[in-house]
Write a protein that binds this DNA or RNA. Structure first.
Lengths: 115, 115
DNA sequence: CCAATAGTTCGATATTAATCGAACTATTGG
DNA sequence: CCAATAGTTCGATTAATATCGAACTATTGG
């Protein structure tokens, strides 16, 4: 039952968090986790090879954004919402809100038809 | 009187903003601008060659974080606070608050003496 | 114990981004 | 108009990241 090392909240760094979120794939993982939690890596891999997915999860874990719990044969990922919010109030929520805002305005563009 | 191209607020993208802020030097520029505005590039270059500074300012401009106004022989930089906040409410403020929080807790570490 | 599943680690390659010097541009002061 | 100032642009180098396949590890079901 080997588990992962996760940094404690006191060691979170804004720069690491921003860097972790500066990659489109990692940002999409965080967005999806915000909608359904926890989730194994599988449904989040979006066609990428497992080694790539694993790398990105590792970056997210080291930044303190994601906690991974080994449960049986799958690794369950969740956002470290409470700890993140205690350390940097509103940071994650505001970024997620900005993403939602962006998505909303993109969908409203004329010329972008859905189905 | 050649001025710069700046993206309009509707074109700001969260990913670009996060990417722009994921570099330590650029983050330090933003932090300093938040404290004193506007400022020319000079006092912000922190020993780096001008070409490097120029590159980083260009990234910040393209992400919509910074506006550069050519006034005489200097380029005055400021944060696009209002536009940013209209597009992504609270985003910049929350990130700046997180940085202040981090700085505060670092200063309070035992073992970190100031002068 | 074996096969299957889920993910990690390793090593190599490719892509992206930062760094720096040198030459260039625009503006002002004299 | 000339010299000085403040930045930009260009091109080359280097450093940092992402990507991917292959081999490896841990856990469960049969």
């Amino acid at each position: 039952m080997k588990q992962y090392d996760h940094p404690v909240a006191a060691d979170f760094q804004v720069l690491h968090i921003l860097h972790a979120l500066s990659d489109p794939f990692r940002l999409s993982i965080v967005r999806k986790l915000a909608q359904a939690q926890p989730q194994p890596c599988g449904p989040l891999q979006a066609g990428r090879p497992k080694s790539s997915v694993s790398h990105h999860f590792s970056v997210l874990r080291k930044a303190g954004l994601v906690r991974t719990d080994v449960v049986g044969v799958t690794h369950m990922n969740s956002l470290r919402t409470q700890e993140l919010d205690a350390r940097f109030p509103g940071l994650l929520a505001t970024i997620l809100a900005a993403l939602a805002q962006e998505e909303g305005s993109a969908a409203r563009q004329p010329g972008t038809v859905d189905a």
